[in-house]
Design a protein around this nucleic acid. Structure first.
Length: 269
DNA sequence: GTCCATGTTCTTTA
DNA sequence: CTAAAGAACATGGA
């Protein structure tokens, strides 16, 4: 569900309602969603104030008034919402934070997501740079070091952190690059176009509050709108909106991959 | 019953 | 040894 634009939208909607509030009570229904295992989350959260909520790649980072931090990753099916205490409790709600008059609820049926405690640790980043702040020479340098398909490289969070299957496909289409193109074989102009395409695709998606394919909603429970504007993702067999050629779907690195064979030729044009 | 899914990480292969 | 490919994780919907 959640890639950078969806996570950004959750952070914006959640922080608007939660920053400055106190966590009065903590209900952890499943302890195995917390890392490190066995960490006493309730003891460390109860009575603390939320100072800020920010995004790092696909992580929702919460900072408390004692400078402790933790992050929530939504995995595939996670949702983080703010609700009235009397709102119906959906199945797979693993964590409930009472912030006085309303509750932050974390729900995640597939449990690929979870809570990671950082404490006052600063050096917690084993992931690559933010795509929205990435400079073309930096991107070029990273891509020159791998022979993998460009699509697979874009999904590698240690290289660039924040893109997922939807936005990798959309950015490659916007840049006119074949997903199987070897990363180290892109020329300077292609890397520049790709960098521009990544940024514009993500910014547009954020403006439209992300893509809702199934579960995704923001902290207020609102679905996104960007899925209506996808140009290739999940559009196999439909006409390319730019050239009318039918969109193709292949499997690359175990992931479904959609592209336009006309706009994204394998050989350089 | 089968296949597929917005993500990450561990294991296997080359 | 390293890089890349593949499997695994858990659940639900088509």
């Amino acid at each position: 569900m959640p890639e950078l634009p969806e996570v950004e939208t959750v952070v914006r909607t959640l922080s608007a309602k939660v920053v400055g509030r106190t966590i009065h009570n903590v209900r952890l229904n499943r302890t195995d969603i917390v890392t490190p295992q066995g960490f006493d989350l309730a003891r460390h959260l109860r009575g603390r104030n939320v100072v800020d909520i920010t995004r790092r790649a696909k992580r929702i980072v919460v900072r408390l008034d004692n400078d402790d931090r933790f992050y929530i990753h939504l995995g595939m099916s996670g949702r983080l919402t703010i609700e009235k205490p009397d709102a119906p409790m959906l199945p797979h709600t693993h964590l409930v934070l009472d912030v006085g008059g309303s509750e932050i609820r974390f729900r995640d049926p597939r449990r690929f997501g979870g809570i990671w405690w950082l404490g006052k640790e600063r050096d917690d980043e084993n992931i690559g740079p933010e795509p929205l702040a990435l400079r073309t020479p930096q991107l070029a340098k990273m891509l020159s070091k791998t022979k993998r398909a460009i699509k697979s490289a874009l999904l590698d969070q240690r290289l660039i952190a924040g893109l997922g299957n939807i936005y990798a496909d959309e950015a490659l289409h916007a840049a006119g690059i074949h997903p199987k193109k070897r990363a180290d074989k892109l020329n300077r102009e292609q890397v520049r176009r790709l960098n521009v395409a990544i940024k514009s695709t993500l910014r547009r998606a954020i403006r439209h509050k992300g893509s809702t394919l199934r579960d995704y909603v923001d902290a207020d429970g609102a679905a996104g709108n960007f899925h209506n504007l996808h140009r290739v993702y999940a559009r196999e067999g439909e006409d390319c909106l730019r050239c009318k050629t039918p969109i193709k779907r292949i499997v690359l690195g175990g992931r479904s991959t959609c592209f336009c064979p006309q706009c994204q030729p394998r050989a350089a044009r």
